[in-house]
Amino acid sequence: METYSFLRELADSWGLLAMTAMFLGIVVWVFRPGARKVQDDAANSIFRNDKRPAEADKPHQAKEA
């Protein structure tokens, strides 16, 4: 058996199986019960240093005479 054919068959069968297992592992890891706190912390991390709410449309309004 030549090297190319062997590697092609290996990638077609075991490569697909490995990628499927990795995808399923990532999905299970993301949706595990203990992940909620970590995901909420990451989602709200951009608001950690906010001291006051943003001013509504004030910088974008033109001055009226």
Score class of each variant (00 low, 15 high):
K37Y: 01
R8Q: 05
R52N: 04
G25D: 09
E2W: 01
L10M: 07
A35G: 14
A65L: 11
A42D: 14
G25K: 02
F31H: 09
A42L: 09
W29Q: 08
F23P: 00
F31E: 04
G34W: 02
R32S: 03
K51S: 08
P53N: 08
A18I: 10
A42K: 14
S13T: 15
D41F: 04
F31D: 03
R32A: 04
M19V: 08
A21W: 02
I46K: 13
K37W: 12
R8F: 03
S13N: 12
G15P: 01
L16E: 13
T20K: 02
S13F: 09
A21Y: 03
N49G: 12
F47G: 08
K58S: 05
M22G: 02
A21T: 13
M19I: 03
A56M: 05
K51T: 12
L16C: 11
A43Y: 15
R48I: 04
N49A: 07
V27L: 01
D50M: 13
L16F: 07
L10Y: 11
P33H: 05
W14C: 04
V30S: 03
T3V: 09
D12G: 00
A43H: 13
A65W: 09
E9A: 14
R48S: 07
H60T: 13
M1L: 12
R52Q: 08
A18H: 04
R32W: 06
V28K: 02
S45V: 04
E9L: 13
E55D: 09
E64R: 08
A62T: 07
Y4N: 05
E2M: 01
D57Q: 13
R48N: 10
M1Q: 05
V28I: 04
M22C: 06
D57P: 00
V27T: 08
R32L: 02
A18K: 09
L16R: 12
A21M: 10
P33Q: 08
H60R: 13
P53V: 00
D40L: 14
K63G: 05
L7Q: 11
F23S: 15
D41R: 13
D12F: 00
V38Q: 06
K63L: 11
M22I: 09
T20C: 01
P53E: 08
A43P: 01
K58A: 05
D41S: 13
P33D: 12
R8H: 03
E2F: 03
A43S: 15
R48E: 11
K63N: 07
D12C: 00
W14Y: 10
A54K: 10
V28F: 02
E64K: 09
A42H: 11
E2L: 04
A42W: 14
A35Q: 15
R8T: 05
A21R: 10
E64Q: 08
R36Q: 14
F23H: 10
E2D: 15
A18G: 04
L24P: 00
H60Y: 14
K51M: 06
L24E: 02
T3L: 07
H60I: 04
L16N: 14
V30P: 00
Q61V: 09
A42I: 15
M19R: 05
R52K: 12
V27W: 01
A62H: 06
I46N: 12
R36K: 15
K51E: 09
F31M: 11
